[in-house]
């Protein structure tokens, strides 16, 4: 089983450092994960125990085979390959991952000034679509994750916006006569 960690284009030192710590690596191994990829973005982390095999690319030998790198043009393949995704609270990442029906643990970055991102992950966690955790509680969150209890996220429904705009612009044939202002 494969786990993928992503911080998007942000910097989230604490999450990257925590993911590479013994408690997290141990619990991942115990839960059956054998490979780990970390997309670390602009984060700083302690690379002293890692082998650097290219610019912005590191490996870590051990029971859990680990690769760390900074950026890729698209993360879609990484999401698809993963059995579990651990991510920062960016809304784009959250939507992409949930639409692929992958189990997701979200860690909002507490150092962001305007931390509205936690709003979204808390709300979606409340609806059961994902788990929300903190950097410190990540090992427990992984330990306690039961993917069978996650609620599937609805697929994209383009008709809502299409009908809204059609109706506003006077195309009544495809619109419903509902909505707050009618």
């Amino acid at each position: 089983m494969h786990v993928f960690v992503t911080v998007g284009s942000t910097r989230f030192d604490a999450l990257v450092q925590q993911v590479l710590s013994e408690p997290v690596l141990d619990v991942l191994y115990r839960r059956g994960y054998r490979t780990l990829d970390v997309q670390c973005g602009n984060s700083d982390f302690d690379a002293s125990l890692l082998r650097r095999d290219a610019d912005d690319h590191w490996q870590r030998a051990g029971d859990l085979e680990t690769s760390i790198w900074r950026f890729k043009p698209s993360l879609k393949e990484d999401y698809e390959r993963a059995d579990l995704i651990i991510s920062h609270a960016g809304s784009g990442t959250i939507i992409d991952v949930l639409r692929l029906k992958k189990p997701l643990i979200v860690i909002p970055n507490p150092t962001l000034l305007d931390n509205h991102q936690a709003e979204l992950s808390d709300a979606l966690a409340g609806l059961g679509h994902l788990r929300s955790s903190t950097v410190a509680d990540l090992p427990q969150a992984i330990e306690g994750l039961d993917t069978s209890t996650l609620v599937p996220f609805p697929q994209f429904d383009g008709s809502r916006f299409r009908e809204l705009l059609d109706e506003e612009m006077g195309y009544y044939d495809h619109s419903r006569e509902t909505g707050a202002r009618h």
Partner: peptide, 14 residues
């Protein structure tokens, strides 16, 4: 133009 504003999906409470 008709102006249509869609608030981000990320805005839940504010």
């Amino acid at each position: 133009p008709k102006l249509i504003y869609i608030e981000s999906f990320a805005r839940v409470r504010q």
